[in-house]
Amino acid sequence: MATLILVRHGRSTANTAGLLAGWTPGVHLDERGAQQAASLPGRLAGVPLAAVVSSPLERCVQTVQPLLDARPGLSLRTDERIGECDYGDWSGRKLAELAGEPLMEVVQQHPSAAAFPGGESMRAMQARAVDAVRDWNARIDAEHGEDAVYAMCSHGDIIKSLIADALGMHLDLFQRIHVEPCSVTAVRYTRTRPFLLRLGDTGDLASLAPRGAGDQGGEGNAVVGGGAGAP
């Protein structure tokens, strides 16, 4: 079956402002995010891509545009099922404010039970994203053969939930995974099980440097929405 390259969108204006963007319109890449996107064609230069699929949100489309420009034979395909989690009433709010909400502890410790007010549950988010990958795997296999590789640009929580599925992890453990902006994660699917080939690869080890606890929303907490990455 196909090999999937998951790309998290580059750093966005919401990331740097500490906002939980969700499906809020008008969230674009910031200057660094645009630079990250510009480097993507070079990072993937040695990888033959059969297709590029993206969340329809602006920050993802902007991230893959340089890749599409570098490969005129590819056209963009979008899929709402890999769009960001619908955070409902939390969308557009400051993460620092949300840290004190009782629901945040559930999001951190028991995400399979978390449902955002006016939005969706994290369980539903994972289910739609996994369904999308299964469908695209079958489509890519049928159109390009079982050795094909394709790219999919999405969001932090979506990618983390897909990694959890590939590893056979319960959704309650997915907050232990972190993916940087514009990082690359690769999963090779087979008939019987997936194999995780790369996880959150940025080509830059600076993100391993110690950071303040505030960057993670508190000691031991995961960054809901994915965060802004290394400073």
Rank of each mutant, 00 (worst) to 15 (best):
V53S: 02
L20C: 07
L103Q: 05
R43H: 07
Q109A: 14
R32W: 00
A51M: 08
D69V: 15
L67W: 00
A99W: 06
T16R: 08
G83N: 14
L57C: 05
Q109F: 06
S55N: 14
S55C: 12
P102F: 01
R43M: 09
E105H: 06
D30Q: 10
D135Y: 05
L98S: 09
I82A: 08
Q35E: 14
K94H: 14
N15H: 06
P102I: 01
D89M: 12
L44T: 15
A132Y: 00
G26N: 11
W136P: 08
D30E: 11
V107T: 03
S75E: 08
T16L: 03
Q35Y: 01
Q65L: 06
P111A: 05
A114P: 05
A96G: 07
G46Q: 05
I140S: 05
L44W: 14
E84F: 03
V27P: 04
V47K: 14
P25V: 06
R59H: 01
L20F: 08
T16H: 04
A151W: 00
R93A: 13
E146Y: 01
H110N: 15
V64C: 03
V149F: 10
S121D: 05
R59P: 00
A124Q: 13
E31F: 03
D30Y: 07
K94F: 13
L74T: 01
D141T: 12
W136G: 10
D131I: 04
C153Q: 04
H28C: 03
G18H: 03
A138I: 02
E80L: 07
P56Y: 01
Q109P: 02
L68M: 12
A38Q: 15
R139L: 14
Y150E: 04
P102G: 04
S121P: 01
D131C: 09
A70W: 06
A138P: 01
Y150S: 03
E80A: 12
L98C: 10
E31D: 15
A113E: 12
H155R: 08
A96Q: 13
H110Q: 15
R123E: 03
S39C: 08
R43K: 13
R93I: 07
R81W: 07
M152F: 01
L29I: 00
P48Y: 06
I82G: 07
R123W: 04
V106F: 12
A148H: 02
G118R: 01
L76G: 05
G83C: 14
G26Q: 11
L57F: 14
S112R: 09
S54V: 02
V52E: 10
E97V: 15
H110C: 10
C60T: 15
T24Y: 02
V107D: 04
G119N: 00
D86W: 10
L67G: 02
S91C: 11
L95C: 02
E105M: 05
L74N: 01
A50E: 03
R59Y: 00
V106D: 09
G83H: 06
D147E: 15
V106H: 12
Q126D: 02
V27S: 00
P41K: 06
H110Y: 08
W90Y: 13
